[in-house]
Amino acid sequence: MKKAFLIILISGTTFVCLAQSKKITAKKPVSATKTGTGIVIKSSLDSTSYAFGTSIGAGLKTTGLSTLNYEVLLKGLKDAFTGGKVLLTQQQAQQCINDALTKASLVKNKAEEAANRIKYAPIIKEGQDFLEQNKKRAGVQTTASGLQYEVLTPGSGIKPTATDSVQVHYKGTLLNGEQFDSSYDHGKPVTFTLNQVIRGWTEGLQLMPAGSKYKFFIPYNIAYGERGYGPSIPPYSTLIFEVELLKVNGK
């Protein structure tokens, strides 16, 4: 719509100018444009070629690639476009592209993670400090993964395995006490397979006999990690859950 409006506006302006001048003047020749590389754009073909180049470059930049051998890139572009002999098979070319994009993605993800760790450093420290103090409380036990749990109500039923389906009631809160979810509020328990939830739950629920109620204190790395979850759980959040294991459904 904006493009159409622009065309109409330009056309209308031209019409007014012609009406006022009452004569048609000859078009001035397009002056040559010199780019920063010394290449001179003299024709519409030059402009189109350069435009395609910038478009391809912008697209490649979004992949996370930081540099390429531009002379060889142009060679490959020319060979493919003109039907010349290509130096790599389609399979070899695709493998090179996949490897480069994978490497670029890893570098980009590491950079983003480092930046996020600085950004969310207060949340990370808050979680670490809380867990350090919490593990000193009577009744709180800590596993090798860093998961902390407290038995609120003992149970006498069977314990589930990682591949079992279970039925639970739960309430989840942040360290500041803000509740982000509760099956009690939904009015019914939830059923799921243990290996389909966050690692802290997968590990913790296997410690619980059916009929018991535990309180879990879950570090961010076995909860929702550096990404968090939706608007309610910020990245790097340590979480607290009260969980009732109502039933083990089996595999």
Rank of each mutant, 00 (worst) to 15 (best):
M1T: 05
K3W: 09
I7Q: 07
L9C: 10
S11W: 00
S11H: 01
S11L: 15
F15H: 08
A19M: 15
K22Y: 07
K28H: 11
K28W: 00
S31L: 14
S31C: 09
K34T: 09
G36D: 12
G38D: 06
I39R: 14
V40N: 00
L45R: 12
F52Q: 10
T54H: 03
S55Y: 10
S55Q: 12
I56H: 01
A58Y: 02
A58S: 10
G59N: 13
L60K: 03
K61M: 11
K61S: 14
T62D: 08
L68Y: 14
L68R: 09
L68H: 05
Y70C: 02
G76T: 04
L77C: 02
L77Y: 08
D79K: 07
V86G: 00
Q92Y: 00
Q94C: 06
I97C: 10
D99A: 09
D99H: 01
A104F: 02
S105Y: 08
L106A: 11
E113K: 10
A115S: 13
K119W: 08
P122K: 12
I123M: 08
E126H: 03
L131R: 11
K136F: 02
R137H: 15
R137W: 03
A138W: 10
A138P: 06
Q141K: 07
Q148M: 13
L152Y: 00
T153H: 11
P154I: 04
G155P: 00
S165L: 02
V168H: 05
V168G: 01
Y170I: 06
T173D: 13
L175R: 07
F180K: 04
F180T: 14
D181W: 06
S183T: 15
D185M: 05
G187W: 02
G187S: 11
G187E: 10
K188T: 15
P189C: 12
F192R: 02
T193P: 03
L194Q: 04
L194E: 04
I198D: 05
R199M: 04
G200P: 03
W201E: 02
T202G: 10
L205T: 08
Q206M: 13
Q206L: 03
L207P: 03
G211S: 07
K213C: 03
K213D: 00
I218Y: 07
P219Q: 05
Y220A: 09
Y220T: 00
I222M: 11
E226R: 14
R227D: 10
G228S: 08
P234W: 00
P234R: 06
Y236K: 09
E242Y: 06
L245H: 03
G250C: 05
